[in-house]
């Protein structure tokens, strides 16, 4: 599930996840570093309230995540996970393509259904410093890799799901 910021990805992905059999795992990747992040997380928690998701906070090291039993997982979102893995505490860049790919495959093996929310970060045409460019390229590469392998790819545009590959159930 891809799309720009505030395009309706979460709402749609959560509804879709809940249409699959339980248990429903919500894998949250945002690292709470300031008030703004806290507000964003709270907003998403309120959206999910009563929905029956088991929330697992996993801002990094997806390769070490163990689910109690197979079910439906919603990972939100790949853009945070990638940034968390890629930049260390001093802001240095790590090559984490293999680590993230391995982590996702590790998760796939434990789920019957998996929905991954990502983001379109490469369409503003602004030349960024090298670190940011590397991030855009890495996220694009992971997105391409997943889209090639996964059954369904959709872009959310103004809250409207637009199918790019496969069929929604």
């Amino acid at each position: 599930m891809t799309g720009g910021s505030a395009a309706g990805k979460s709402t749609f992905a959560e509804e879709l996840a809940l249409s699959f059999p339980p248990p429903h795992y919500y894998i949250a990747t945002m690292r709470i570093t300031d008030v703004e992040a806290r507000r964003k997380v709270t907003r998403h928690q309120q959206m999910r309230q009563g929905g029956g998701f088991l929330t697992l906070e996993k801002p990094d090291n997806l390769d070490r995540l163990v689910l109690d039993q197979p079910g439906t997982a919603l990972l939100e979102c790949l853009c945070n996970l990638t940034a968390n893995e890629m930049f260390d505490e001093e802001g240095r860049i790590q090559d984490v393509y293999d680590k993230i790919s391995y982590g996702l495959e590790h998760l796939e093996r434990q789920c019957k259904h998996l929905i991954v929310v990502t983001n379109e970060v490469g369409s503003d045409g602004i030349p960024y410093p090298a670190g940011t460019q590397a991030y855009i390229r890495l996220l694009g590469r992971i997105n391409r890799h997943l889209a090639a392998r996964y059954d369904v790819v959709a872009e959310l545009i103004a809250g409207i799901p637009t199918l790019l590959k496969g069929q929604l159930p």
Binding site: G3, G4, S5, A6, E36, E120, G122, D124
Partner: peptide, 21 residues
């Protein structure tokens, strides 16, 4: 459409981008 890029640096621009979406 303004949401398909890198998260803006300033809180104002981030809020505006979210508001547009």
């Amino acid at each position: 459409e303004v949401g398909s890029g890198v998260i803006p640096v300033t809180a104002h621009d981030r809020a505006a981008r979210e508001a547009v979406g």
